[in-house]
Structure formats: C-alpha cells, structure tokens
Computed example of a mutant assay.
Amino acid sequence: MLVFSQNMVYNFFIALGVMLGACLFGGVAATLNGHPPLKTMLDLGDKIKIWAAVVALGGTFPSLKIIEIGIFNGEFRGLIKQMLYIVSALVGAHVAYKLMVYLEGSGRL
C-alpha cells in the first residue's frame, strides 16, 4: 500500500511540474516573439493538460495494458489502481492550470 500511495504522489507532482515548466518556458518564448506571455501560458496550459498526465504515467501503453488485463481477465485490483493513478495525474495537471489562472489574475477559477 505504501508503494501505491507513493506512486500517486509522484504522478501528481510530475504532472504538476510538467504543466508549470512547459507553461513557464512557453511564456518565455512568447515574450521573445512579442506575444502576450500570460495569455500564451494559459492557452498552452489548457492545451497540454492531458499530455502532462500522460507524461506522469510514463506513456499510455503500460496503462492501457493494465486496463485491458483488468477488464478482460477480471483483475479489478490492478484496474482500480491504474484508474487512481490516472486521476492523480489529471488532478496534478489541473491544479497547475488553476494555479496559473490564479496567478494570472483573470478570475477564471
């Protein structure tokens, strides 16, 4: 159970870090190109949320294989664990996006 909870924390923070890092460097690129950095960061964050979760999970194929085994072979424990990993990564990406919205100050929380 300890490894499971540790992996959920890893997934959360990896997705959060991918979002924050990508949007921060996207904002730098927007500044260099003469575009509004905050708007670019929010647009980019909205577009890459799902990809941050995929990165946190280590790619989609191992996750899909475990889901397939869970559904077709009746191993529901692995299926539930994988779903919780996915939710953890999605929540991490969403928290990063909401943090950027809050820091931008548009009031879209």
Score class of each variant (00 low, 15 high):
Met1His: 15
Leu2Phe: 10
Leu2Ala: 13
Val3Trp: 02
Phe4Leu: 05
Ser5Phe: 14
Met8Phe: 02
Met8Thr: 04
Val9Thr: 09
Val9Ala: 10
Tyr10Val: 02
Phe13Cys: 02
Phe13Ile: 08
Ile14His: 00
Ala15Ile: 04
Gly17Phe: 04
Gly17Pro: 03
Gly17Glu: 06
Val18Lys: 00
Val18Met: 08
Val18Ile: 09
Val18Glu: 03
Met19Asn: 06
Met19Ser: 06
Gly21Met: 13
Gly21Asp: 03
Gly21Lys: 04
Leu24Ala: 14
Gly26Ser: 06
Gly27Trp: 10
Gly27Cys: 08
Ala29Val: 13
Ala29Ser: 10
Ala30Cys: 04
Ala30Thr: 06
Thr31Arg: 11
Thr31Gly: 06
Leu32Ser: 08
Asn33Ala: 15
Asn33Phe: 13
Gly34Val: 12
His35Lys: 08
His35Cys: 01
Pro36Asp: 15
Pro36Leu: 06
Pro36Ala: 14
Pro37Gln: 02
Pro37Thr: 05
Pro37Met: 02
Lys39Ala: 15
Met41Glu: 11
Met41Phe: 01
Leu42Thr: 03
Leu42Phe: 01
Asp43Leu: 11
Asp43Glu: 13
Leu44Thr: 04
Gly45Asn: 12
Gly45Lys: 08
Gly45Tyr: 07
Gly45His: 09
Asp46Gly: 15
Lys47Pro: 01
Trp51Asp: 02
Ala52Val: 07
Val54Lys: 01
Val55Asn: 01
Val55Thr: 05
Ala56Met: 07
Ala56Gln: 07
Leu57Ala: 09
Gly58Cys: 08
Gly58Phe: 04
Gly58Val: 07
Gly59Pro: 06
Gly59Leu: 03
Thr60Cys: 08
Thr60Trp: 10
Thr60Pro: 00
Phe61Ile: 15
Pro62Thr: 14
Pro62Arg: 12
Ser63Phe: 13
Leu64Arg: 02
Leu64Thr: 12
Leu64Ser: 10
Lys65Ser: 09
Lys65Ile: 08
Ile66Trp: 01
Ile66His: 02
Ile67His: 05
Glu68Phe: 10
Glu68Met: 11
Ile69Arg: 03
Gly70His: 05
Ile71Cys: 00
Phe72His: 07
Phe72Leu: 14
Asn73Pro: 00
Gly74Lys: 14
Gly74Ile: 10
Glu75Ile: 02
Phe76Arg: 09
Phe76Val: 12
Phe76Ile: 13
Arg77Pro: 00
Leu79Ser: 04
Leu79Cys: 05
Ile80Gln: 11
Met83Asn: 05
Leu84Asn: 07
Tyr85Ser: 07
Tyr85Leu: 13
Val87Phe: 15
Val87Met: 14
Val87Asn: 04
Ser88Phe: 03
Ala89Trp: 11
Val91Ile: 15
Val91Phe: 11
Val91Arg: 02
Val91Tyr: 07
Ala93Ser: 15
His94Ala: 00
Val95Lys: 12
Ala96Asp: 09
Tyr97Gly: 00
Tyr97Val: 01
Leu99Glu: 08
Leu99Met: 15
Met100Cys: 00
Val101Ala: 12
Val101His: 11
Tyr102Leu: 14
Tyr102Arg: 06
Leu103Ser: 14
Leu103Thr: 14
Gly105Met: 05
Gly105Ala: 10
Ser106Val: 09
Ser106Ala: 12
Arg108Glu: 12
Arg108Asn: 11
Leu109Pro: 00
